[in-house]
């Protein structure tokens, strides 16, 4: 599908950037006139993926997080969040609800939240190289509702 607009940013993996990252993506997507629920869903999914880069990928260091948003025809949004951190050994297992490697204060539900709030979530990863999370969502077209 033809791309209509896109946006890229690179931010250091500091937890103080979690809020900025999700708000920036939401602001860009707002040109499609999404519902509040759709915007909140996207913000939440972005927050999960970005937090994973900070907490897991770059556990003991500060690295770069690459965020790309593409707006396609027919109200389709594609968000890509990439890191060059530690990578995931078994992606299938990592995506299972309640699976976590981070101990007591993490629920292991980040991927479950992404999957439930976006239409599609794809994860590719290589140990020692990094992880890319690609999420897509087709927004409702409000003019159709009238």
């Amino acid at each position: 599908m033809k791309e209509l607009n896109n946006f890229k940013m690179v931010i250091p993996s500091k937890s103080s950037n979690e809020s900025f990252a999700r708000v920036a993506v939401a602001a860009f997507v707002s040109q499609l006139d999404p519902t509040i629920e759709e915007i909140t869903d996207i913000k939440t999914a972005v927050s999960e993926a970005v937090t994973n880069c900070i907490v897991h990928a770059y556990k003991d260091t500060i690295g770069k997080i690459y965020i790309t948003v593409s707006i396609r025809e027919e109200n389709k949004v594609i968000v890509k969040i990439k890191d060059k951190g530690c990578g995931i050994e078994d992606v299938k297992k990592a995506m299972e609800p309640l699976f976590t490697t981070a101990g007591e204060e993490r629920a292991g539900l980040g991927f479950a939240v992404m999957q439930s709030f976006m239409d599609n979530v794809r994860v590719t990863s290589k140990v020692g190289k990094g992880t890319t999370v690609t999420m897509t969502k087709t927004l409702s077209r409000r003019e159709d509702e009238k």
Binding site: S47, E48, T51
Partner: peptide, 16 residues
């Protein structure tokens, strides 16, 4: 005003 799975972790931790 906003919550992600970190909020779930917070609730589960307090529950324990």
């Amino acid at each position: 005003t906003f919550m992600d799975s970190s909020g779930i972790g917070l609730v589960m931790g307090r529950y324990r």
